[in-house]
Write a protein that binds this DNA or RNA. Structure first.
Length: 449
DNA sequence: TTAGGGTTAG
């Protein structure tokens, strides 16, 4: 009972401890406590403990049910462990449990959100497999695929599914469907189409929500139409929609990127006048710090940091990343490493972004050996080198004229199954080919050059 | 089980 009580009170680590103790004292633990605990751990993105609790459940012969498997598969997908998630589908069958529409939706979403080429092909294959097993796709299935195609910059495929959904007798598009497709259109710069879909929502009795407005505001901002973005923002009140801190962050960030720090600060100040909007979220401060750093205004940035301290708002991973990035770009990698150590001291786990910026910082200063040491440190910290890491290192080697070393890194990256992106090709073209060096790597790379 | 903002390489 203790496990469930702690889980319900969001005391997840205490719940895990109670779960462990329950094993030793042989207290009865039922699936009714285990499933919520697994679900809470997944929500906390604590995949390590999620997997441990699951293994322990099996060891203690607590029989998993459909919800257990769906929760586990969701957790593994969110952690990017798609293969393990697939294995669990086989496990559940062995337990005599058939995958449900939720199982398939979860897996399809996992593939949709994976950053790999051809992921939508895999997602579509899963959809076909699901249909072949007479499991009927629901509105969520459509939403997941529509969003996946939009993020894959294939709005045509997304629109096709959207039309299919509208033609179905048993299903209707929801606000989430519309938001996904409006977001996709915004990213393609098709603001007119996005706005007409917003009108279509009203005609179909689907009420736009704050996300709809956030997406439109961001769309206008990212297409350099700040005035129009502000107009959408101003129109919210008339529709009875209250902006959230995300709405403000979107606009504040756009003004920061436009170099209009005055307007950004003004917006931040005005947040405190709106009911239910917290002006002291760390993410809003991050927008402002990033804005000041971008224009090289150190005083501005430290004023914001001081204000955060005054108000008791703690810097997070992204705050540190912004500051580390700024120092690295200014050739102050040593100071940046001090911040890296500081974040470790206060218990913040540096991300790929943190390490990649530091590696890039050293490369910019021509300190290639130190850059490679930083990669070692990164991997010791459990962050595997990714495409950005290799791009940065390859460029660093090229700029020092070390073409064989650059080529070696390129091969290494391909051997690890990392997929080169547009920037990799730009580096090869601009740095390698330009210097008359022909990359001595296997054929599949040339397709994109 | 699904949608929105803030940090990296050009």
């Amino acid at each position: 009972m203790l496990v469930l009580a702690y889980t319900k009170n969001s005391k997840v680590s205490l719940a895990v401890e109670a779960f462990d103790r329950a094993g030793n004292y042989r207290f009865g633990l039922s699936i009714l406590s285990c499933n919520p605990l697994l679900s809470a751990l997944v929500k906390k993105k604590d995949i390590g403990n999620t997997e441990n609790v699951y293994k322990e459940m099996i060891r203690r012969r607590i029989e998993p049910n459909l919800i257990t498997f769906n929760t586990m598969i969701n957790g593994l997908c969110k952690a990017g462990k798609l293969n393990k998630a697939g294995d669990l589908v086989e496990d559940m069958k062995a337990w005599g449990i058939s995958p449900s529409v939720i199982t398939y939706n979860t897996l399809i979403d996992g593939y949709c959100k994976m950053g790999k080429a051809g992921k939508m092909y895999k997602a579509d294959a899963l959809l076909k497999e699901m249909i072949s097993k007479n499991i009927v796709a629901n509105e969520v299935t459509f939403n997941i695929l529509i969003d996946g195609y939009c993020k894959d910059e294939n709005v045509v495929a997304a629109t096709k599914l959207f039309e299919e959904l509208k033609n179905r007798q048993d299903l209707v598009p929801s606000v989430i469907t519309y938001n996904s497709i409006i977001n996709g259109l915004c990213h393609q710069g098709e603001l007119d189409k996005a706005l007409s879909l917003q009108k279509e929502m009203l005609a179909s009795n689907v009420k736009p929500n704050v996300v709809t407005y956030n997406v439109l505001i961001d769309g206008f901002c990212k297409n350099g139409m700040l005035k129009e973005a502000h107009e959408v923002f101003d129109s919210m009140a008339g529709q009875g929609i209250t902006p959230t801190y995300i709405t403000y962050n979107t606009l504040i960030n756009a003004y920061c990127k436009d170099g209009e720090m005055q307007e950004a600060i003004h917006l931040h100040d005005s947040m405190s006048l709106v009911r239910d909007v917290r002006p002291d979220d760390v993410s809003t401060y991050n927008c402002l710090i990033s804005g000041f750093c971008r224009e090289g205004n150190k005083e501005g940035a430290s004023e914001i940091l001081d204000e955060m301290k005054e108000k008791g708002v703690r810097a997070d991973l992204i705050t540190y990343n912004i500051l580390i990035g700024a120092l690295c770009r200014e050739g102050e990698s040593r100071k940046a490493v001090k911040l890296l150590n500081e974040m470790l001291e206060i218990g913040l786990h540096p991300s790929h972004v943190t390490y990649n910026m530091l590696i890039d910082g050293y490369c910019r200063e021509g300190k290639l050996a130190t850059a490679l040491n930083m990669r070692t440190r990164m991997e010791k910290d459990g962050r595997k080198a990714n495409v950005v890491t290799y791009n940065v290192l390859i460029k660093g080697q090229c700029q020092k004229g070390k073409m064989q070393e650059a080529n070696g890194l390129l091969n290494e990256m391909l051997e690890k199954g990392l997929v080169p992106n547009r920037i990799t090709y730009d580096i090869i073209r601009d740095e390698m080919m330009e210097k008359g060096f022909v990359p001595d790597i296997d054929g599949h790379l040339y397709g994109g050059v």
